[in-house]
Design a protein around this nucleic acid. Structure first.
Length: 490
DNA sequence: GGTGCCGGGAA
DNA sequence: TTCCCGGCACC
């Protein structure tokens, strides 16, 4: 039975709340909320199916200002179409998983009556009850602009089989009738990692026979005004779900709600081939937002724990995010792969999971020192023994002019050549691209016969020949020290 | 072999 | 930094 119920949930939902979770919670019924349209038609006749109280797991969606929404799997009870989440469920706000059923560490995050919990690992948890749609008002007070939307998650082909609407739809219909307002309806969120790993299409989810409807819907008992609009199906166009949900994003104009509210997705206007996103570099945090303001707010709020809008530590969050460019331009893509910055940003070997915030900070802060110190080593050496500098090294694929101090190619080209002995990891931050690297003019080397070839012996007489071994004390210091003669230089 | 001097060690 | 020297390349 359990499996049957669980199977009703969407793929995305099943990722959020696995059947294992349900077992652990002793769940007797995991209900999926379904498309509203069909529910309204068949709601009454199956109302009684919801009259009994049962342990349930609700999947809900919370969308907060400046953040992508998260799917929450709440454990609780259901009676008369009212879902009452169990108390003391603390949800990890990014995944929606229940991270704890006990408060961990109360931080100074209290806003109004709700609890805002931050555990030692840095995760910010929120009590499940506050995430519940029925607690929208208090949650809104808590998060101010936050909206909490209860929803299940869509299955693309659900609308095809709307005729098979079943009890679950009825349930949704019943809830609908109690709704009076609704938050802005958003498309189902899809986290970057989930999208990348294709959990949606590759999880092998097959709708059960009891419910083939996979429409994702929203069900906020007290906060619903656009109740019956089915969401667009996930498809190849689901790339657009990269666009994080952010109510206050200034750049959100391309996240046209109308394209989400209706069946047929409106093709997103394409300003150019590049889509710049901002990715949180906090350990284990994969958050990607479309604007720097959004990611800053995310970092400030979630990771740094800054509650207000104070300027305290202003700018610190800059160290914890990076810019990524989601492009559709293959040419520029190839070019960027030549850059270490791009590589560090996009290379699959870039281990984001191991990136520590402090590393990011250090790397960025060392930016200036890096650009100061490392190349200066080269310069010093060039100045010290300019006559014996090694031959110019060709960098395949590089056509950068070394005399351009602002070019990002400078450090890149110099690093493998002159950073000998010490591996220098270049920070992968946007700032370095824009920072004014010290002008690093590589001194032109005189013609050489080859690397490591000594300078031709000078023709002029040296102290040794002039004064002879007998008068060694008359030699110049360099000659006495078997260095290049300073008295009779070539 | 003589010479110039680079590279590196010791104080 | 100064002093010294092994060792290499050039003549």
């Amino acid at each position: 039975m359990q499996a049957r119920r669980l199977s009703k949930r969407s793929v995305l939902g099943s990722k959020v709340n696995t059947s294992e979770d349900a077992q652990d919670w002793g769940m007797k019924g995991a209900r999926k909320r379904l498309g509203m349209g069909a529910v309204i038609q068949e709601g009454a006749e199956k109302q009684r199916a919801n009259d009994k109280e049962e342990v349930a797991v609700e999947q809900q969606r919370a969308t907060c200002d400046g953040e992508e929404s998260v799917h929450c799997s709440l454990k609780g009870t259901r009676k008369n179409n009212k879902f009452v989440p169990s108390t003391n469920q603390y949800l990890e706000r990014h995944t929606g998983h229940i991270a704890s059923e006990k408060p961990i560490t109360y931080q100074a995050k209290e806003r109004k009556e709700a609890e805002f919990v931050k555990c030692n690992s840095g995760k910010v948890l929120k009590r499940a009850q506050d995430m519940n749609g029925e607690c929208t008002s208090s949650f809104s007070l808590l998060e101010q602009k936050c909206k909490v939307v209860s929803s299940s998650i869509d299955v693309p082909h659900a609308r095809i089989f709307e005729g098979e609407a079943d009890m679950d739809k009825v349930t949704a219909a019943m809830v609908l009738t109690s709704l009076s307002t609704s938050p802005l309806v958003r498309s189902p969120p899809m986290r970057l990692t989930e999208w990348l790993y294709g959990s949606w299409k590759e999880s092998g989810f097959v709708p059960s026979s009891t419910s083939s409807s996979g429409c994702w819907s929203w069900n906020t008992p007290s906060d619903c005004s656009n109740p019956s609009t089915p969401s667009p199906p996930l498809s190849a166009d689901s790339f657009r779900y990269f666009q994080p949900l952010n109510y206050t994003d200034e750049n959100n104009e391309d996240a046209d709600p109308s394209s989400i509210l209706f069946d047929e997705p409106v093709p997103r206007k394409r300003k150019n081939s590049m889509k710049v996103m901002f990715k949180c570099l906090w350990k284990t945090c994969e958050k990607v937002l479309s604007t720097s303001a959004g990611i800053k707010k995310h970092i400030r709020t979630i990771h740094l724990g800054h509650t207000g809008e104070s300027d305290e530590n202003e700018g610190e969050e800059d160290f914890y995010y990076t810019e990524i460019r989601l492009n559709t331009d293959a040419v520029s893509e190839g070019l960027r792969h030549l850059s270490p910055f791009s590589q560090s940003l996009q290379s699959p070997t870039f281990d984001k999971g191991k990136r520590e915030p402090m590393f990011a900070k250090t790397a960025t802060k060392s930016n200036s020192s890096l650009s100061r110190s490392a190349p200066s080593t080269s310069c010093l050496r060039n100045l010290d023994h300019a006559y014996q500098t090694t031959a110019p090294v060709k960098i395949p694929g590089s056509k950068k002019v070394l005399t351009n101090g602002n070019s990002i190619g400078v450090s890149w080209i110099l690093s493998p050549v002159t950073f000998t002995g010490t591996s220098v990891s270049l920070p992968s931050y946007t700032e370095i691209r824009e920072s004014k690297l010290p002008v690093q003019t590589v001194l032109p080397s005189p013609p050489k016969t080859g690397i490591g070839v000594r300078k031709p012996r000078g023709e002029g007489k040296k102290c040794r020949k002039v004064y002879g071994m007998e008068n060694r004390d008359k030699w110049c210091t360099a000659c006495r020290w078997k260095k290049a003669c300073q008295r009779f230089p070539d």
